[in-house]
Design a protein around this nucleic acid. Structure first.
Lengths: 365, 365
DNA sequence: CACGAGCATGTTTACGTGAACATCGCGAGC
DNA sequence: GCTCGCGATGTTCACGTAAACATGCTCGTG
């Protein structure tokens, strides 16, 4: 497993200046330039180098210049492992997620990374191939050993509910899109509000009721949207049609659309995401059901493409950037206050973007 | 900035067992459980703890059990900073990228993260908000200070061309989607082949020529596709229509589509990505140009949604997962062999996915 | 002119881990 | 019965950094 035991530590007593140039990086082992090397070359103590490197005051101009020159010559870069060891923190936030492919995740992660970077934190990604209990567990364990000060979880957390799962104690955690607000600090889009907006919009246009294409059963976001859809209909005293089950993919939306196209009473559909709405549009188009003249469609997410669907999609806009921002805020607060993950859910509002896929229902003959 | 200097080092002589439970993580500073703590509780030396932690042989069953019990009780997790310092490597790969939003990037990153994880490496993301020379530079510097063993760059590298940019020497680098194959190790989709496939497909269907909607000028991938498009037309002895310039967004494709709808001679369009193709479809639909009866459209990327466009899009499939896999392979090879970045370009093949957006041109009256 | 304040710089040390080397104890072989 | 050998465990040290403390010099002031 580690066949090179003794050869590893060659301490490169050759001076080190060879590394400075543009040449091939010496081949052998790590032995990156250390402060001591720089100090030796500059003729100062390593502490002075440290002071220069960190911009501490109390180093006179000439000395500083000398040190800087030595740094340049040797190509010195601070060793973050040593730094982290010294300081006890890594300036890194871990992100555990299921897949980057799903619409919102990549945008959330991007926002997280951006805001974290602005605060001087880097992002370490741990993807989970298949969201097995075991895999998630494993990721947490691995993450625990990883160089992170806090963790943001972007997985349907109820996958981890069963019994034994305990996030490593003492690790700051913020969870996205979850019902675990009673145990963790949760940031989420206000799914319920979004779904309600969609349903209300369609009812206000005069539709008798609204059909629904759900996300996968495993998705908490999808569940909440479906729940809010049902509630909005019930509050309005409307019949609740049986929901059709999708899996977020356009294909599944297409399948649902083919089924719905055969429902003569169906004049309005709320799809739990834009991809599935795209599938609906295709199905309705193929079946000769005009959107929005015969049937109205509302999506969820407001992906950039939605404005170029045929017809441009009315949808619920999610502010992924804001979700990411609040996640970072949340973990940073925990890190700085030193407190534990304070349970509670923060909701990011949504808004309805009305485009051309919705209209009043056709007048019934 | 750091007002708690002296208070920091409280060595928690209280035993440490308090941390084990589920309670609030003590509040105070890091002082995570160290091997010494575990050793104390287990009544052994810290070296024995180390041996148990690393699965080294030479620890008798009873002792091992004792140590494991102590670990559990204290909630011990190894300190990766110390480990990294000791070993001189971090088991982490840095990924510098421009944006996660763009189609392929998130999928490439996901593949990178997955394969890296399989090899025991974590991924550290450094996003660059605006791809300024300065920002990229800054990211590299930061990355240099970061705890990474190698770096994968997913930015249009020609942004960094101007003069002074030198990646920190001795850092292993693989670049995605770049023309820097002469200086760095590059992995890329075979853009030229993909574009040629698209053009050939359309010409073979009988179209006189093929129009093109490009990506942004700053994109190397887009440039290569445009170049290959032009070349394929010239090789076939066809006229080369003026390319229309897009920016990857569906909206820009829509704008291009509106323009193209007014070109009576235009019967086939090759869009440099699927989003822009979507925009084309919308524009043609609005202008009453039937796809594919009147006009054929080919995209690039094969995003999952493409099969549900109206009509389903004929497009060039990119294997992002394979790109990610090769990136990881590349950096790992460099890390293990200890060599520098060996310049050269690895191309991942593409394939044409024919759906329903292409057909022979309408018979000219 | 002497002495002390203040500042530039050097020295020591600890952070947590694990390799290398040291030690201790026990059983086997002579 | 004594010693040798080996396996289990302990001790020392270095990794690179930076805080804390120590030193030594200069300049200002009485």
């Amino acid at each position: 497993m580690d066949p090179d035991g003794p050869a590893r530590q060659v301490p490169a007593p050759t001076g080190g200046a060879q590394r400075g140039g543009s040449g091939i990086p010496g081949g052998r082992r790590k032995q990156r330039v250390s402060m001591a090397d720089v100090a030796r070359l500059a003729g100062v103590s390593s502490q002075t180098v440290s002071r220069v490197a960190n911009g501490h005051p109390g180093v006179v101009g000439a000395t500083r210049e000398q040190v800087l020159a030595a740094m340049r010559e040797l190509g010195y870069r601070p060793n973050s492992a040593a730094r982290a060891l010294r300081y006890g923190q890594f300036n890194t936030i871990g992100v555990i997620l299921f897949g980057l492919a799903s619409t919102g995740n990549s945008r959330t992660v991007e926002a997280i990374a951006t805001h974290a970077a602005a605060e001087g934190y880097a992002i370490t990604l741990i993807p989970i191939g298949i969201p097995t209990q075991d895999n998630v567990l494993g990721a947490f364990t691995r993450m625990g050993e990883l160089a992170v000060d806090a963790v943001i979880v972007i997985i349907e957390i109820h996958l981890l509910d069963a019994g034994t799962v305990t996030l490593p104690p003492g690790v700051h955690v913020v969870v996205v899109d979850s019902d675990a607000g009673d145990r963790y600090s949760v940031v989420d889009t206000d799914q319920a509000e979004g779904a309600r907006l969609a349903v209300r919009h369609l009812l206000d246009l005069g539709h008798e009721t609204v059909w629904h294409v759900t996300g996968p059963k495993t998705s908490f976001a999808g569940q909440r949207r479906a729940q809010a859809w049902r509630l909005a209909l019930e509050e309005a005293g409307r019949p609740v049609p049986p929901p059709l089950h999708g899996d977020w993919s356009a294909e599944s939306g297409y399948a649902a659309g083919l089924a719905l196209a055969g429902e003569p009473g169906c004049t309005a559909v709320f799809a739990s995401n834009d991809q599935m709405a795209l599938g609906l549009l295709r199905a309705f188009h193929e079946r000769g059901r005009a959107v929005p003249a015969d049937i109205s469609v509302v999506g969820f997410d407001d992906i950039p493409d939605a404005s170029c669907f045929v017809p441009p999609l009315t949808t619920v806009h999610q502010d992924f950037a804001e979700v990411g921002r609040r996640c970072v805020q949340g973990v940073l607060r925990q890190i700085r206050e030193g407190g534990a993950s304070r349970p509670g859910t923060e909701l990011v509002p949504t808004r309805l973007v009305v485009r051309e896929s919705t209209a009043p229902p056709p007048t019934r003959p």
